[in-house]
């Protein structure tokens, strides 16, 4: 029927697709968090990638630093996620909210978060050293269907990322605070008129995005490594996904994340892993030249 070579090729392609899907799902998680903040506050957070590291490092401290074992990863998530929310909320209230009263605050927020990113990178270097860190897999072992081998880890990453996005989507559409977040994104003046406390919504949105990217950090640190600098790469990826999907469009971000995840896996397979980032930039440039509003952006 098929030659052995063809079958081997098929396995390799399956591996690439799985890698693409699991990467894509984490990118989706991060892009949705980023686009949410942009859609609501119209400000750009350059420290986003460093919150990815923060999630990974918090989990690392718990597991290796404190020897935390209660309920496995579920216990880690139960502790780290509220912590990420608190960090995000406090940072927004203490650092970004005071800027918002000034003129041209969007640019000032960019500068501030850029500074924050540098600060966090240095902080991580001092505290954790430059050596790479990795987290144990959330679920060890493999699932074998005939000759196909799936790592449970990949499946868990995929399921948990999509679960996180689903939960966010449910919250946005079914809770009072979620509707308020959408209201502020759609019409800030209207939101103010009906008595939605904009400041609190801004801070909550920022905190939610911190949780999402921190969650992404925990998921991906099991497969890849984190070091103090990896926030920069993550930031670039999240940014390209967001720009390609269309700033402020959650649905666009989702499509873009999977397209880019697949593209990376495919380029890595054909040309080698280091070409992934080159492909990313080519895609970014192409997007900015041919469709600056992104896949599903509203233009402007």
């Amino acid at each position: 029927m098929f030659s052995e070579d063809t079958i081997l090729l098929l396995y390799e392609i399956t591996d690439v697709i799985i890698a693409g899907l699991s990467m894509g799902s984490v990118y989706a998680l991060m892009a949705v968090g980023m686009t949410l903040v942009y859609g609501v506050t119209k400000a750009f957070n350059f420290a986003y990638g460093d919150f990815f590291n923060m999630g990974g490092y918090f989990a690392w401290i718990l597991i290796f630093g404190l020897g935390f074992q209660f309920m496995g990863y579920l216990g880690v998530l139960i502790i780290v996620m509220p912590l990420m929310f608190a960090v995000g909320y406090a940072l927004e209230k203490l650092m970004i909210a005071p800027l918002r009263k000034r003129e041209d605050w969007e640019n000032k927020v960019m500068m501030l978060t850029l500074g924050l990113a540098l600060f966090l990178t240095s902080l991580y270097t001092v505290v954790f050293g430059v050596r790479m860190k990795s987290l144990p897999p959330i679920w060890e072992g493999t699932l074998e269907i005939g000759q196909l081998v799936f790592a449970y880890q990949d499946i868990m990453i995929f399921v948990l990322s999509l679960g996180g996005i689903g939960l966010l989507g449910w919250m946005l559409n079914n809770t009072r605070i979620g509707m308020a977040v959408q209201a502020v994104a759609q019409n800030p003046v209207g939101a103010k008129i009906v008595g939605i406390p904009k400041e609190r919504i801004f801070a909550s949105t920022f905190a939610i995005s911190t949780v999402m990217v921190g969650f992404g950090g925990i998921l991906l640190s099991q497969k890849y490594f984190i070091n103090p600098m990896s926030g920069g790469t993550i930031m670039i990826k999240a940014w390209v996904v967001t720009a390609f999907g269309g700033m402020g469009s959650i649905r666009g971000g989702l499509y873009a994340a999977f397209i880019i995840g697949m593209m990376e896996a495919l380029v890595g397979w054909v040309f080698g892993l280091s070409y992934g980032i080159i492909a990313l930039f080519i895609l970014l440039i192409a997007t900015l030249v041919f469709r600056p509003q992104g896949l599903m952006g509203k233009g402007g």
Binding site: Q182, Q186, N187, A191, I193, V194, G195, I196
Partner: peptide, 26 residues
Amino acid sequence: LIYIAENRELFPHMTVLENLKLGAYA
């Protein structure tokens, strides 16, 4: 006390019912 705007300031991508429910946010 409520302000009802001349240019309406509705939430464009929400349904009529969702707009109304947000009116009761206070």
